[in-house]
Amino acid sequence: MLSEALLVSAPGKVILHGEHAVVHGKVALAAALNLRTFLLLRPQSNGKVSVNLPNIGIKQVWDVGMLQRLDTSFLGLSPTCLFARVTEQGDVSVPTLEQLEKLKKMGDLPRDRAGNEGMALLAFLYLYLAICRKQRTLPSLDMVVWSELPPGAGLGSSAAYSVCLAAALLTACEEVSNPLKDGVSVSRWPEEDLKSINKWAFEGERVIHGNPSGVDNAVSTWGGALRFQQGTMSSLKSLPSLQILLTNTKVPRSTKALVAAVRSRLTKELIDMNQHHLNALGVGHNSLDQLCQVTAAHGLHSKLTGAGGGGCGITLLKPGLEQATVEAAKQALTSCGFDCWETSIGAPGVSTHSAAAVGDPVRQALGL
Rank of each mutant, 00 (worst) to 15 (best):
P11Q: 07
K13Q: 08
K13G: 01
H17V: 09
V23P: 01
K26D: 13
A32I: 01
L33M: 07
T37E: 01
S45C: 09
N52A: 10
G76D: 07
A84G: 15
E88W: 03
L100M: 11
D108F: 12
D112V: 06
R113Q: 15
R113M: 14
N116K: 14
Y126H: 15
I131Y: 14
W146S: 15
G154V: 04
S157V: 04
S158T: 01
A168I: 02
P179Q: 07
E192W: 09
E192N: 15
E203M: 14
R206C: 09
R206S: 03
V207F: 04
V207I: 07
N211R: 13
N211Y: 09
V219C: 11
S220R: 05
W222Q: 06
W222E: 04
K237W: 08
L245M: 15
H276P: 05
A280R: 15
V283Q: 04
G284N: 03
N286S: 14
Q290T: 13
G299E: 08
L300T: 06
S302I: 00
S302M: 01
G306L: 00
G309D: 00
C312R: 04
G313W: 01
L321W: 02
K330F: 00
S335F: 00
F338L: 10
W341S: 08
V358F: 07
D360P: 14
